[in-house]
Amino acid sequence: MLDTEQLNSHYDQLDTLGTADVVRALVDDQTQAVQAVSAVLGDLTRAVDETVTRLARGGRLIYAGAGTSGRLAQLDAAELVPTFSWPAERAVALLAGGRLAMFEAQEGAEDSTDGALQDLAEVELGAGDVVIAVAASGTTPYTVAALRRAREVGALAIGMANNPGTPLLLEADIPLCLHTGAEVIGGSTRLKAGSAQKIALNTFSSAVMVRLGKVYGNLMVDVKASNHKLRERAVMLVMTAAGVSETEARAVLAQADFKVNVAIVSLLRGVSVSEARALLQASGGHVRAAITSTS
């Protein structure tokens, strides 16, 4: 039996506990999610570095999963677009059962290897892409098939699972085993197994974006300022990064169509907005490189 499916004898009387004790048990058990991610920092670092290399050459991030794991992967892909202005067509999330499965469980879809192959064919998976496949069990046929096809075409295959020695990890170029063990509620991998996946996915994609220059210092400088809150955040980011007044930040942002990275490069390099855009294009969108380049 998989570790995530084992029964946790420590909580075998969970239903007899008071509400406060049930809540404490569930929260306390989550600490193991952080520990599980910490245990794979080396592999996670390698996954980030190799992904950055592929994406810098024009590759895409393609997530694949089913059920809870697939929904977490879908969420990670979706958040890259507003947070880092990453092109939506380069953050593709494949979920067993299709988009409907994001909101309504399509449990049978995870058993379809043909479904995975068809989904990958539709997005035209190529050798320059990165596939990150996520499954708590590490045995989900849809997810395993997706990762196997990734390796066949020469794409970077990253596998994330919560059970060691499982097929998904064995198929991966870079296996990420988030070994969280038995859950408080037997078999409910939406608990600490899911938490570990969320932490690892957040860490992975955020680190990738840092390495691609979407962050300056620790500021999110390629955010899409698509509403009032985000426009005000853009002003704060420019003020902080460039050390200018609110008035000056707003003026340059207005010229730069509220593109934070363009405004920062313009102010710190002392160049026009159009020159700042050219510097960013030449640096591949890397803000610090655009600021420090000698061209």
Rank of each mutant, 00 (worst) to 15 (best):
E107A: 08
A73H: 06
V81L: 03
A93C: 09
E107V: 05
A77F: 07
G59D: 06
R60H: 01
D111A: 15
L80W: 04
D76E: 01
T51P: 15
E124C: 01
D49Q: 15
I132C: 15
G128K: 05
L100I: 10
L55G: 03
G126T: 11
E107S: 03
R60A: 00
Q118S: 14
M102S: 11
M102W: 07
A78Q: 07
A77M: 12
F84L: 08
D114F: 04
E104N: 11
A64L: 11
A127L: 07
L75A: 07
S137T: 02
R54N: 13
A73Q: 01
A136Q: 05
G128Y: 09
T113E: 15
A105M: 05
A133C: 11
A127T: 03
G97H: 00
A64Q: 11
F84G: 08
G67C: 00
D76M: 02
A121Q: 11
T139G: 03
E107N: 04
A101V: 02
D129Y: 06
L125P: 11
L117R: 15
T51I: 14
L100P: 00
A127R: 10
D49C: 05
T53S: 01
P82C: 00
G97Q: 05
R57D: 02
E104F: 03
S69F: 00
A136N: 07
T68G: 09
T83Y: 04
V92P: 09
R60T: 00
S85F: 06
Y63I: 03
L72M: 02
A77I: 08
T51Q: 14
A88D: 13
G138Q: 05
V92D: 01
R71E: 06
E107I: 05
Q106C: 14
L120G: 02
L80C: 03
R90E: 00
T51N: 15
M102R: 12
R57A: 11
T68I: 08
A105Y: 09
F103R: 07
E79R: 08
F103T: 12
R60D: 01
L95C: 06
F84W: 09
V130F: 13
A96F: 11
L75S: 08
T51D: 15
E89R: 13
A66W: 09
E79P: 06
D76S: 07
A121S: 12
L75N: 04
E89C: 08
A78F: 11
L72I: 05
G108T: 12
G138S: 04
E79W: 08
A105D: 15
G115I: 13
V123H: 03
A133F: 09
E107L: 10
P87T: 06
L72S: 05
R54K: 15
V92K: 01
V131T: 12
T83R: 07
G108P: 13
D49N: 15
L120S: 02
D129T: 00
A96I: 00
F103D: 06
V131M: 11
V52C: 14
D119E: 01
